[in-house]
Write a protein that binds this DNA or RNA. Structure first.
Lengths: 210, 210
DNA sequence: TAGATTGTTAATCGATTAACAATC
DNA sequence: TAGATTGTTAATCGATTAACAATC
């Protein structure tokens, strides 16, 4: 047996395909093609067909893909045909925006608790949430069998927070702190660092012409 | 001449190297090695040496790299040895967090204006900022020769906002809206989509064991 | 000098693209 | 049937890694 695992880079594109499919559904479309999907994403149709082929056959020759069917299949593949509870650590400005970010809800990710370690903040109302002591987080993760966590704390605290999350059972971490987390096998981390993106783009700024 | 351009994926790693170098400086370190940098990032030392070799020779055999020197060189390469003014569109929760995100300041990116199209919001205080009419944005971009913009508006509005930015002279866009922007040659877009990251990681969740 | 680490070359690995038979 | 588009194979392209001479 031992199927070769699907390349991670391919998995990472599925959410993007899913997004386009949802837009197509909103537009009332029933059928699409790898060509159309590629055009809307700025990638080749061949790549889309190749990517999908890792998971099965979803289209019909001469016709294309049934939009809703493909959407459902991608949701199954990604395990997002259900809701996922998520813990959030860090009750700052960023945490506030994340806690109330509509798209998490819409996509099936429910932030079930917001935690911080600042005694001034613990117990305070935080939009829809009440800020809880991060010390109580492990118990909640274990009781509710939560697998996903978001870190929105300063870099110095991020490593400890990640450790506590992992120890309690979290295996997927979305990390907004600009630190590389060393995690055991089986735990995934995705990083979001807007500063790195701006620095990356600054490289291409034509500084001579200024 | 026509030097081959440095691969974009290599450029994208420079900000990460820079981050580690800054941490090393904070720790009072003077010298480091590709081995140490790789260990702290979970990548191979060969990759670091190869990446740096695209830009020049920064180390000394037998010794390694002077931390501050390498840091300064990377800053020069990335054109971040100066401050960059940035416009921000979208005065929602996310915009609020971005407008006050310290790391932008620290890294030399100054948000010089926050814009929205909601008449209810225009003119309102927004933390340190006053929300301005997005219609006035192009004039400000042109007057101040601003090259970078951040989009934090709903998907439906993002395409128009990007168009206006680009027309006014923006060439680097950090886009938080979950839409692919079609941009002319010479304009760069970086996407941030936390939902896509969660969906990506959901793939690896072992759903059977639930 | 002996030890360490760079910068670079060549080998390997993996991802993307082109092309087309299959078939709806 | 003619036209269109898939799924897949093979070719191409590009990125990573291993290895080592150069040298501090």
């Amino acid at each position: 047996m031992a199927d070769k695992p699907v390349p991670d880079i391919v998995v990472g594109r599925l959410p993007v395909y899913l997004r386009i499919l949802n837009y197509l559904i909103d537009e009332g479309r029933y059928i699409t093609s790898s060509q159309e999907l590629g055009d809307r994403l700025g990638i080749s149709s061949a790549q889309i067909r190749k990517d999908l082929s890792h998971f099965g056959e979803f289209g019909k020759q001469g016709t294309g893909y049934d939009v809703k069917y493909l959407r459902d299949q991608l949701q199954n593949i990604l395990h997002i045909n259900r809701r996922w509870p998520v813990v959030l650590v860090g009750a700052g400005d960023l945490g506030h925006a994340l806690a109330h970010y509509r798209r998490f809800q819409d996509a099936g990710f429910d932030i079930v608790g917001v935690f911080d370690n600042d005694p001034e903040k613990i117990g305070q109302q935080f939009g829809r949430y009440v800020i809880q002591d991060v010390a109580t987080m492990p118990g909640i993760i274990e009781e509710q069998n939560i697998k996903m966590g978001i870190i929105a704390v300063p870099p110095a605290a991020a490593i400890e927070v990640a450790k506590a999350m992992i120890k309690a059972g979290i295996v997927s971490i979305l990390n907004y702190a600009p630190v590389t987390l060393m995690v055991p096998l089986g735990v995934r981390v995705q990083y979001i660092d807007p500063v790195a993106h701006l620095q990356h783009m600054a490289y291409y700024q034509n500084v001579d012409e200024d």
